[in-house]
Computed example of a mutant assay.
Amino acid sequence: MAERTAIMSHFTLAACAEMIWRDRPIEWRCSRLTEMGFQVGLWNWPDHDLAKLEASGATFSIMNGYLTGRLADDEGADELLRSARETARVGKRLGVARLNLHGTGLGEGGLPVRRCEVVTGAMWLKARETLGRIAEMAEEEDVVFTLENLNLPVDHPGTPFGRAGDTLALVSSVNHPRLRLNLDLYHVQIGEGNLIETCRACLPWIGEVQVADVPGRCEPGTGEINYPGIARALAGMGYSGPVGLEGFARGDPEAALAAFRQAFTL
């Protein structure tokens, strides 16, 4: 019988377990992704049995890095630090590579707990200070946090510091190895566009790239984004780190994962 040649990606590929096989237990999803050669992303650790996640054998690429708190006011910052430290310890238990933050706490449907339409200069300074504290705490706990960009027009209206330009400005100004960008290209496409040049600008601070097609937030090949072109551009820039599918499957989940892998296999 002819040997089967494994298809290898230039990147480390992961997929968000909460968004696929949604009728299956989370530990089954984690195990199946692992069998298929993917790392695993998680959204909200308190929703799950940690012992079962550990037993799944998964390598966890990223998970939500806080439960409550905000970047840009004193009370919210203190709560964010408390919550993020608690989550950092859970992340270490699971071996999670990166712990994810947003510009503010998100509630039902991904909407901000406190909607903010105008971000003042004082808020920018406070957010930078808070992220500096996060980076110092991450050093103490031996973990890495990421700050994710979000789109405002469709999914997350009223979220402060949501644009990729905003997250880049904050993370680059803190400039600490324990604080990186989670550059979500689905959100960039909806909110800003210019994906390849955004990747280039963010490159020194990227911890993970996340992807889904537009519209629909499904796997590559279902919408308007040329993800094979993005993959070639990222590789040409020298990026070989994690790329995570944070999207739904339009049909069969395994076919969706295969399409994702193909888009990022050079």
Rank of each mutant, 00 (worst) to 15 (best):
L181D: 08
D49K: 01
A88I: 05
G110H: 04
R200I: 09
P220G: 00
G76T: 04
A169H: 12
G41T: 00
L50C: 11
P253A: 06
L111K: 14
L234V: 09
F264E: 02
L185Y: 03
R4M: 13
G223M: 04
E254Y: 11
G191C: 02
A84D: 07
L257I: 04
Y239P: 09
I20V: 15
N64R: 13
G110T: 08
R93N: 03
F145C: 00
G221M: 04
V113P: 10
D252K: 03
D252R: 01
G57K: 08
I225K: 02
R89M: 05
A212S: 13
R70A: 12
G95Y: 08
H48A: 02
T59G: 14
L99R: 07
E208R: 10
E139G: 10
T130K: 04
Y66S: 13
F145P: 02
F264M: 03
G37A: 01
V40S: 06
Q210K: 08
I206Y: 06
T34Y: 08
N151I: 00
A51E: 15
W124Y: 07
T265R: 01
E27F: 07
A77P: 09
F260P: 10
A138Q: 06
A169V: 09
A15V: 04
G121K: 01
D23Q: 10
E224C: 00
